[in-house]
Design a protein around this nucleic acid. Structure first.
Length: 248
DNA sequence: ATTACTACCTGACAGC
DNA sequence: TGCTGTCAGGTAGTAA
């Protein structure tokens, strides 16, 4: 569910309440190591939410249906709770694909899509023969993009999802890099996309789903040409694109 | 190095 | 109403 903009939105919400709070007790899946320790900062690392402590980091990955909220309530799907000296941090996950773990080093990931320079991006993509959609989804290549934003960005840049990385020209890749910046920024500004489960740290939905141009819109007219958006599978992921605008 | 496929788990929805 | 099949924002592991 949550990709970079959704995780960023949750992080921003938690930044307002978590720093300087001390963990008093934990319940459920949450690691005991954090008990008695003070949260120094909240950050995003790819699709991970990172809580900084003096001697390590707590990584939270929301998987497909995870939620991390500032709430003392519980639901049927609450899997863990961090009781703080003031307030409760609650972790929900319907499908249990999410993870919460303690570490002192970072999981290996590629550069952040919002931080990589256009030049580095062009070089990285052109060094690979893998299809561009697979590359963008690969967290070891770029950390943060998922199925929604990959479809949106490739549509905007008019690039066919199956195009091999090394078949893309520099101008095309500059357009793609720019599309990534614009789409992710707009999505963050809209508080992310809520397709079914995603909510922010306050339990509120985002609104960027109202601005999707391609993702999930197969069978509908292309917003740009007279064609119809089509659906196909790319490495087992549902993919929507316009066969007229995004030619191989 | 890269691809293909499976598994993890639950819910929503379409069709019968 | 209820059953069956399909699909879903993600990632890890295994085999080819």
């Amino acid at each position: 569910m949550p990709e970079l903009p959704e995780v960023e939105t949750v992080v921003r919400g938690l930044q307002a309440v978590l720093p300087r709070r001390t963990v008093v007790a934990v319940a459920g899946v949450a690691p005991e190591v954090t008990v008695g320790k003070c949260i120094l900062a909240v950050r995003r690392y790819g699709k991970f939410i990172v809580l900084d402590f003096e001697d390590g980091m707590l990584f939270v990955h929301l998987g497909m249906t995870g939620q991390l909220m500032w709430s003392s309530e519980q639901s049927k799907f609450t899997r863990g709770q961090f009781f703080l000296d003031e307030g409760v941090l609650r972790y929900d996950d319907i499908r249990k694909f999410g993870k919460v773990f303690w570490a002192t080093t970072y999981p290996k990931r590629g550069p952040d899509p919002l931080e990589i320079s256009a030049g580095d991006f062009v070089q990285l993509v052109q060094s690979r023969r893998t299809r561009i959609k697979v590359l963008l989804l690969d967290q070891g290549f770029l950390r943060g993009m998922g199925n929604i934003y990959t479809d949106e960005v490739l549509f905007l840049a008019r690039i066919h999802p199956m195009t091999p990385g090394d078949a893309l020209s520099k101008p095309k890749l500059l357009v793609l890099h720019q599309a990534i910046q614009e789409v992710l920024a707009a999505a963050i500004a809209a508080g992310g996309s809520s397709i079914s489960d995603y909510v922010n740290a306050k339990g509120e939905k985002g609104s960027f789903q109202d601005h999707h141009q391609a993702y999930g819109k197969h069978g509908k007219p292309c917003p740009r040409c007279a064609g119809t958006l089509e659906r196909m599978l790319v490495s087992q992921r549902g993919t929507t694109f316009c066969p007229k605008c995004q030619k191989l």
